[in-house]
Amino acid sequence: MHYFWAFLVGGALCVIGQLLIDLTNLTPARILVLFVVSGVALSALGWYRPLAEFAGAGATVPLLGFGHLLAQGVVAAVERHGLLGALTGGFSAAAGGIAASLVCGVIASLAARSKDQS
């Protein structure tokens, strides 16, 4: 059953993104920023954790989940290190995803070439 909810919630979050693209003039970059910041806010309000527990990857794979990850990381770091944790928590939690993208980017830039998409 948790596969079904992951699919449904993940798909629904993407539809929200699609509605923002089609119905507003927001560029992709703005939508991504909006999703991440909203993720932080929803997590701070305590609303995202129940969703993540319920829908699993359906809530954590979309970029809202990235915001949730940052917010959780910062909370854990503040608990351990006090105010300093507000600075270190976000990057620590996000390090895996960002570093993986960065490494993949460097490897891809060496291995692949820009191709005409037409």
């Binding site: 692949a112 820009s114 191709k115 005409d116 998409q117």
Partner: peptide, 8 residues
């Protein structure tokens, strides 16, 4: 955007 970027 870069050619490989998935922007609709």
């Amino acid at each position: 955007f870069p050619l490989e970027y998935g922007g609709k």
